[in-house]
Design a protein around this nucleic acid. Structure first.
Length: 167
DNA sequence: ACGCAGATTTTCT
DNA sequence: GAAAATCTGCGTT
């Protein structure tokens, strides 16, 4: 959930990808690379790692590894839960189904930018919270999207019966 | 329905 | 100089 810009927007995470450390060829920190961009990938678990790509788009990760170990989960899609009007305004002309169906799309809908790179996701304007007693749903596993290395690693996870996932 | 060009930053060759 | 954890708009089928 996000309260960025004074508006509350929130969604249920329905699709993610894992980037699992220095031995993952598709991870930005492959080989232990430490650059300005990958700095927060080495931070404590629960840190937001937000990167800019393709000259236009922001993408949000939740750091999962211990301090010094670069592993994270890329948030790829949300089922909108709150702040639909705000999301529609921020993504004018886009059908509801596409508001948050993609890592850069959900960042646009929730107004997530690099300003919150390195922020703690347990508190503050951008949070990931556990939902109370959600019913169990079928989780599908597939290869990751948009990468060229380790293309066969099955590290994309999505709710099989959700219409809110990316294509 | 499908395909491709364009946007334009960070990183690496 | 080129590719990248992407998306959009406009062209053609």
């Amino acid at each position: 959930m996000s309260t960025i810009g004074g508006r509350r927007t929130a969604g249920r995470i329905v699709e993610t990808e894992a980037y699992v450390g220095p031995h993952d060829p598709a991870c930005h920190a492959y080989g232990g690379r430490r650059t300005q961009r990958t700095r927060w990938l080495y931070g404590p678990p629960g840190t937001a790692y937000i990167y800019f790509t393709y000259g236009m788009h922001w993408c949000l990760n939740a750091v999962t590894g211990r301090v010094g170990y670069p592993a994270a989960v890329l948030i790829r899609a949300l089922e909108p839960v709150a702040g639909l009007a705000t999301m529609r305004r921020r993504r004018a002309g886009v059908p509801d189904r596409a508001l948050c169906a993609g890592p850069a799309r959900l960042c646009a809908a929730l107004a997530i930018t690099g300003r919150l790179n390195g922020a703690a996701l347990q508190r503050g304007p951008l949070r990931i919270v556990r939902l109370p007693a959600a019913p169990r749903r079928r989780i599908v596993t597939t290869p990751r999207i948009g990468i060229t290395r380790a293309v066969d690693w099955p590290l994309r996870y999505l709710l099989g019966d959700s219409v809110w996932v990316s294509k």
